[in-house]
Design a protein around this nucleic acid. Structure first.
Lengths: 107, 107
DNA sequence: CCTCATACCTAGTTAGTCTAGGTATTGTCC
DNA sequence: GGACAATACCTAGACTAACTAGGTATGAGG
């Protein structure tokens, strides 16, 4: 799948996963790959900066810890993040409907 | 709707509309806006270059004419374009399914 | 010891949409 | 007649977000 397709859609995926419970970057990458059945096998260079942007925007907060000797940054959804997720879900719904309408597919 | 969302998805929309019969740029913009119920109200600066890329890629061919004193460039789908459209439709289907799977929505 | 998996990071590239301008014709309203 | 909207095309440069390709470090298995 061409990488451009994901542009602008990654945030809602990350927020959705984090909304189900705090998670760290590497685990989020795994989760994305599995749930999408390998469709979203994203490089770290895509996901880490995206998480940083979400934190910058105040949609997630992070805490660092050490697990089995490895440093780990765990993300949790903020109140603003929950709002943003709801809005991004609606946005996805609109986008999907609009594309389907143009392609003449049933919703 | 944020403009980034469209990235990589415009081609399939243009190919789908042109596949229903030859059309010119301005009419395609109108058609997109109406079918998507204003969700895709795209500026000319988005659509014209996209059509040029599709022609460059060999997916559409164009002929110029003059209608009511105005010059007009009409696009038609090529054989390669028909193949590309089929592939892009499958790609959209995969993408949509993958996002829905991550968001936990029913297809 | 070497490789793989885990776990984080960032600078620079790339690609595609948008902004903001341009040209030209026709029709409408005052 | 003059201003303006609608039709119809075009392009250079800005912007943004995902990717490439590198880096660091630990632990486990062969």
């Amino acid at each position: 799948m061409r990488p451009e397709l994901l542009k602008g859609h990654l945030d809602v995926l990350l927020l959705a996963i984090i909304s189900e419970g705090p998670a760290h970057g590497y685990a989020i990458i795994d989760e994305l790959r599995h749930r999408s059945e390998e469709a979203f096998a994203l490089p770290e260079g895509t996901v880490y900066p995206a998480l940083h942007r979400l934190e910058e925007a105040g949609f997630v907060s992070s805490t660092t810890s050490r697990v089995d000797g490895r440093s780990r940054r765990t993300y949790a959804l903020t109140g603003d993040g929950r709002q943003a997720l709801a809005e991004r879900r609606r946005e996805w719904s609109t986008f999907k409907g609009a594309i389907n309408a143009v392609l003449g597919e049933q919703p």
